[in-house]
Structures are given as C-alpha cells and as structure tokens.
Amino acid sequence: MITAEQKPLKEIIEYISPYNRILLVGCNECVTVCAAGGRKEVGLLASALHLNCLKQGKTIEIKELTLERQCDPEYVEELVSEIGRVDAIVSMACGCGVQSVAARYKETPVFPAVNTKFMGASVAQGIWEERCKGCGDCMLGITGGICPVARCSKHLLNGPCGGTSYGMCEISPDVECAWCLIWERLKALGMEKRYEEIMEAKDWRPAGGGGPRKIIREDLSL
C-alpha cells in the first residue's frame, strides 16, 4: 500500500492561517491502514487545529469528512455539497487523493496534511518498510521474491556491492542488504546458479523515465 506520515503541524497551520472554514478530508484506504489520514487522524488533526486557534482566542470551523477513496472521482464527488461552505480543503490522503480533489474543485484551495512516503508493507505493528518502487517491469520472479530496485540502496541489479557487513547495508546497520537476502533465498530454493546470469541494464521507461505513466483498460471503460 501507499504509506504516509502527517506533516509537522506548523506547516499545516501556516497553510490554513488565512482561512476560517476548513473542510478536512480523510481517506479510508491506505492512509487509514498506516494511521496517517483515516477517520481517526482526521479527528485528531481537527482537535489539534482547534487547540491551536483557541490558544490565540480565535475559533475555526472544521468540517470533518472521510471518503471511501480519495483517488476516485466517484467518491470525490461526495464533497460537492460542502464546497460552497468552506474557504479551503485540507486533504489527509496520499498525493493521488489530494490531486483528485484539487482537479475536481478548481475554485477552492487544497492543501496536503500528510507527506506521501513509499509503497510499503507492514513488517510489525506500527512499522512499515519500502518494498516496491513501481518500476513497471517486475523482476521478483528472478530475484527470489526480493526486490533489488526498491531494497538495494544503489538499486544494483547485479549486487551485492562491497559495502555489506554482517548482512546489512553500508548506509545503516538497520537496513538489510537486499542482495544478501536475495542470495539466501536463492540458496534456499536451490537456485544459486541464477546469480551468475548477468542482469542487463534496466529499461527505465516503464518506471517513469518515459514520462508520466498511464493505464488504459478499454474493456472497463464506459
């Protein structure tokens, strides 16, 4: 899923300082799972913004709303009845959600309340790690199910480099060396030989090097 983290309150407060009526919009998908922008976080942020205003003797109107999915026009449409009644929108969704809202409601300023981080998986309660870079040409089938593009700090396709110590990456003792993991997994699968096949230079076009990406499924379009 897409992971995110709330922005520093100071930044959010600065964005909304000229406005009195705010529509604070969460999303029920990824940002809910990583506890950055779901219903609960919408409530907490609203409360923090209220506290901040009360401290200055001001009041602010905050309408809290959490959409099923902020990156889908169908759900973004649900905001339509609120739009005329607010001065600004603060979105707690990932960058896709923020842009969907901004694209639909052109007259109302939209501000992000989270920093969208990476495509990751939960490795333990409260801990998420990057797993996918969305390179558009998945090679997990030949790398033992461990991605060198997302998990090697130099995204080497023919690693490991010389900086590995005790199975950890040279950048930090907290980061596992992807190539050590790949090697261990290939061994477990009895596929050691595969390591010596040279992986050719990657075509980065599907990864975004060819410009913004798009998927068109004609069978699904209306």
Partner: peptide, 24 residues
C-alpha cells in the same frame, strides 16, 4: 565501480543516479 552511497559524502541530499550498476 558503483561508488560509495551519497549518504557518506558532503552532498547527502543528492539523489544517487545508479541508472546502471558496475557490472552493467
């Protein structure tokens, strides 16, 4: 060579290119 990670240098805020690796 692949090169040391940018993290170790004096431009840690730079983006490492790594379009290809040392073998490539």
């Amino acid at each position: 060579l692949s090169g040391d990670h940018v993290k170790f240098g004096d431009h840690a805020n730079a983006n490492g290119v790594f379009d290809i690796d040392s073998v490539q």
